[in-house]
């Protein structure tokens, strides 16, 4: 196997280090003598360069300086060491957390205007569930139900504009959310039932009726379903007006006992 000049030179340097005679070493590689000789001489000369003699006094001074700085920094040093050792994992955790926050915030904000059938719509529904879970009082939950119902009716309008058809699931959802809002209101103690929430629900019901009447024109094939929903909204509106004008002590009884109420569990929505 042919050996490179680098390897031959290294072999010669090692041989000379181990005490081999200069000429004997060269004689083993007659074909490289001219090239090896000056290089080996240079190597030998380099080896003859003395290592500078270290200054013991300087070393002693350094050791004293290092000893005192180590004592001074002992407390802070431990913290620094601890911080340095946890730094990589801490940064990793913080980076992952930040990435998660940024991605989820972006996804949630992008999903706010999404419609059924799009990739982000499930995120929108999930966000609503989380929102609902985080609210602890019935009044807040009732308000959220009204908001969700408003969103579903807006989506119904948007999908109708887009596809010229009726999304029955959205229709069910908007009416169902309105019913659930009233359920929540009914859970509140009689004296605390907020007039503003009832008024909001009333306005929502009227809005739902208006929207459905407009959609009915563009979707004659779903005429029956829409008509049924419009009738329900009308009944609910009448019932709501009666409910709001009745004394508070009777409202509770009405809401829970009236099996014929358009808000009851037995009705379609």
């Amino acid at each position: 196997m042919n050996r490179t000049i680098e390897e031959i030179l290294d072999d010669c340097i090692i041989a000379l280090d181990e005490g081999e005679d200069f000429d004997t070493c060269l004689s083993r590689y007659p074909e490289h003598v001219d090239e090896l000789k000056p290089l080996l001489k240079t190597a030998l000369k380099l080896q003859s360069l003395s290592e500078p003699v270290p200054n013991q006094q300087h070393l002693n001074e350094l050791l004293i300086q290092i000893g005192s700085s180590k004592k001074m920094n002992n407390g802070a040093g431990n913290f620094k060491y601890w911080f340095a050792s946890v730094q990589p994992s801490l940064f990793r955790v913080v980076a992952i957390f930040l990435a998660f926050v940024i991605i989820s915030t972006t996804a949630v904000s992008l999903s706010a205007n999404s419609l059924p059938g799009t990739l982000l719509y499930p995120i929108k529904l999930f966000t609503e569930k989380v929102q609902f879970f985080l609210i602890r009082n019935s009044e807040g939950k009732a308000e959220l139900r009204i908001t969700f119902s408003e969103k579903r009716i807006e989506e119904l309008v948007a999908t109708n504009n887009r596809d010229n058809s009726l999304d029955r699931e959205l229709l069910n959802a908007t009416l169902d959310e309105a019913k659930k809002a009233l359920d929540r209101i009914s859970e509140l103690p009689e004296k605390q039932q907020p007039i503003t929430l009832l008024a909001k629900l009333d306005r929502l019901n009227a809005y739902q009726k208006d929207v459905l009447e407009q959609i009915e024109v563009s979707t004659p094939e779903d005429d029956n379903v829409i008509q049924e929903a419009i009738d329900l909204c009308r009944d609910r509106g009448q019932w709501m007006r009666q409910y709001r004008t009745t004394p508070a002590s009777e409202n509770k009884r009405n809401l829970q006992q009236d099996k014929n109420s358009p808000w009851c569990d037995q009705c379609r929505w």
Binding site: E6, E7, D10, I13, P38, L39
Partner: peptide
């Protein structure tokens, strides 16, 4: 390292 050593000695020479 052997390569660097060779080139260093040649340059010095």
């Amino acid at each position: 390292i052997k390569g660097l050593q060779f080139r260093a000695l040649r340059s010095l020479r």
